[in-house]
Amino acid sequence: MTVIQADKLTKRFGKFTAVDHISFEVKKGEIFGFLGANGAGKTTAMRMLCGLSKASSGLGRVAGFDIQKESEKIKKVIGYMSQKFSLYEDLTVRENIRLYAGIYGIPEKEISPKTDLLLENLGFSSEKNTLVKALPLGWKQKLSFSVAIFHDPVIVFLDEPTGGVDPSTRRQFWELIYDASQRGITVFVTTHYMDEAEYCDRVSIMVDGRIDAMDSPTNLKKQFQSPSMDGVFQQLARKAKRQAD
């Protein structure tokens, strides 16, 4: 089943083509790595898919809805997490979950047991009344991912979710991603860590607004005759003519 579909999706800002006719499909439960150098157009493409920005041309469907005409419906069935903003620092762990659950319209009586279960799985039960600002960064990242998938979205979009996190937490975070994918949640993720690209089922690499390569990490390494995804990335991204952002 296809849950994301982009067909010649394009975004222009004045004369500048930020995203240039990208086409791809992502299947249900897939972990799809969306790579590219700074300024290659990843964030712009992701914003169109999330219904936050209108495409200049091309078609896109997310979770069965048209990104141009049904963006409000899309917002209800996706989750989103970025490194920069995710949780309210001045609310407790529990209050943050409660807030997001309310926004996504989860029935009142389900929120409490679901919250307990989530905190138990994360090993956070003792911290439920702690202010988020007092949590270590790694905990915040794990919590904000859990909050982003609390309403069981069809797709979760993750924008550089592991930046600056220590190595062990970074790995625990990817186990949460695997877990979500096994439950059928599609994961659309950007990262600058090339080892993380290896954890994806498929990877696309954007260069100057286009998708210049897309396949499984194994096939990409074969295609570009490189032992690592870092090598693949370096070969492609060095071809960029556009100035980095």
Partner: peptide, 10 residues
């Protein structure tokens, strides 16, 4: 180099 892509980091 925080938040910088692998090519620019290199």
């Amino acid at each position: 180099t925080t938040g910088v892509d692998p090519v620019s980091r290199r």
